[in-house]
């Protein structure tokens, strides 16, 4: 979508049509730069990853300890203070360190899910696009089936059948990303499979395996890379949704779970909004950063919307 957005910035179009003298070389330049917004987003994502990774080694509070205050602040939850930057929940646990620990599961799930989706969906999509025929038809039909469920419904159904561990939840969300990733991979492969360099490779007797690995894969990987960031955002949100419903990793701290704790009962949100809102902000900025960076990258790499 955003490539068109950039294009129209130069020319007003309501009354347009009359002329389109803008031959848009300047827009081309806008499109070909990632911009400071992109790097800001990448910066945030990297910060989150580093903090999540280092959480146990940083001198932050134990996420599971209860910091009951004896100096007359009364009963928890306590609001944000110098001691507890994000405040505490009603068991007096530190929200800041819980949010950082939550990043561990949320980011891992997001990463593993999209990695799995890229591996399985990408492989199936490339093979379907390359070999066509009955194989393509079956794979495409499987994609249609996967897409004929609302993804959250499918996720809930699958989580009901398994032990909910970090790995299984990641894989369930990975299964959800197979169809969208696979369709993109198939579309990109179709786009390249008839190009001269592929035909040429075939004529000099290259094996299918070699053509796919050497000729197709490098071209198909590029649009998938941009999709990976968007897909990670989707997976993190989906995990959040599952956790919020109590269907994510059992006994683990995740952002969705923290948000759910902050909004349960009838008075928690009213009396101590910080419990829910700090994790919401962190989750929101992370998802926003992934979305924005992914979108910029897609524009930059010029992935066609139609291929998605």
């Amino acid at each position: 979508m955003s490539d068109t957005d950039n294009l129209v910035h130069a020319v007003d179009t309501t009354d347009g049509g009359a002329t389109n003298p803008a031959d848009s070389p300047a827009d081309e330049a806008v499109k070909r730069r990632l911009g400071w917004g992109f790097w800001l987003c990448i910066g945030w994502i990297v910060l989150m990853i580093v903090l999540a990774f280092l959480a146990p080694y940083l001198s932050i509070k134990d996420p599971n300890a209860n910091f009951i205050d004896m100096s007359g602040k009364g009963r928890p939850p306590y609001g944000p203070s110098m001691d507890h930057w994000f405040g505490t929940d009603k068991d007096a646990r530190d929200i800041f360190s819980r949010t950082l620990y939550g990043a561990r599961i949320s980011l891992t799930v997001g990463f593993v899910a999209i990695a799995f989706g890229l591996l399985v969906g990408g492989t199936l999509g490339i093979l379907a696009g390359y070999f066509r025929g009955w194989f393509d038809r079956i794979i495409s039909f499987v994609f249609v089936i996967l897409l004929s469920f609302p993804s959250l419904v499918l996720a809930i159904m699958l989580t009901s059948l398994i032990e909910r561990s970090l790995l299984t939840i990641s894989l369930v969300l990975g299964v959800l990303s197979i169809a969208p990733v696979g369709r993109l991979a198939r579309a990109s492969t179709l786009q390249y499979a008839d190009r001269e360099f592929v035909t040429a490779a075939r004529q000099i007797g290259a094996t299918n395996r070699r053509i796919i690995m050497r000729e197709l894969l490098p071209n198909v990987v590029i649009p998938m890379g941009a999709l990976a960031l968007l897909g990670m955002a989707v997976a993190i949100v989906a995990e959040g949704g599952l956790a919020f419903l109590g269907l994510s990793v059992e006994k683990g701290i995740t952002w969705g779970f923290l948000i759910q704790l902050g909004s349960e009962g009838s008075t928690t949100l009213q009396k101590s909004p910080w419990i829910a809102f700090f994790p919401i902000f962190v989750l929101f900025f992370t998802v926003l950063a992934l979305n924005f960076a992914g979108d910029r990258l897609r524009t930059y790499l010029d992935v066609k919307e139609s291929a998605l």
């Binding site: 020319v11 007003d12 179009t13 309501t14 009354d15 347009g16 009359a18 002329t19 803008a22």
Partner: peptide, 16 residues
């Protein structure tokens, strides 16, 4: 020539 005819009529983009 086309722009001239549209300009006479006033049928041009609003901006720029």
């Amino acid at each position: 020539k086309t722009i001239l005819s549209r300009s006479i009529m006033g049928l041009l983009p609003r901006h720029g």
